[in-house]
Computed example of a mutant assay.
Amino acid sequence: MLYLVAVFFPFVSLFAVGKPIQAIVSLGLYVVSAVLVLTVIASWLGFILFLLLVLHAFFVVHGARADRRAEKIVEAIKSQE
């Protein structure tokens, strides 16, 4: 579900995984990309910036989920000892 949110609103998915500083920076860049897309001169630059924001959000969400899985595995191993 967070991947779908990351496609449309990358900053929301960053807030959801607990990265508030990255989310604020992403929000600022999201606004810049929206302004650039609405202009005729640099619309391609805004689209590229938006794609980079989405890719960054995907990697952060994936990393957060991998960290959570690793913590569960460590807890399971410690509970068996």
Rank of each mutant, 00 (worst) to 15 (best):
V5S: 09
E71P: 00
V35A: 15
E71R: 10
L36H: 03
A16K: 13
Q22G: 11
S43G: 08
Y30H: 15
R65C: 10
F8T: 14
A34C: 15
S43V: 08
G28K: 01
P20S: 07
V61N: 05
H56C: 03
V5M: 13
D67Q: 15
W44Y: 06
R69E: 15
A70Q: 07
S26C: 13
V35G: 09
E81G: 11
K72D: 07
K72P: 02
V61Y: 10
F47Y: 12
S33V: 01
W44G: 13
L27V: 01
V74W: 00
Q22L: 14
I24H: 02
V31S: 12
V12M: 15
G46E: 05
V74R: 00
T39L: 06
F15I: 08
V17P: 03
A42R: 02
P20E: 10
S26Y: 01
V61S: 04
S33D: 02
T39D: 08
K78C: 06
L36Y: 06
L53W: 04
L38M: 15
L4E: 14
A23G: 08
L36Q: 08
S43E: 02
A64P: 01
V32G: 04
L38W: 09
L4Q: 13
F58D: 10
A6S: 15
I21D: 03
L52F: 10
A23D: 03
F15Q: 09
I21F: 12
A66S: 13
F59C: 14
L52M: 14
K19A: 14
L14G: 07
I73L: 04
A42P: 11
K19E: 11
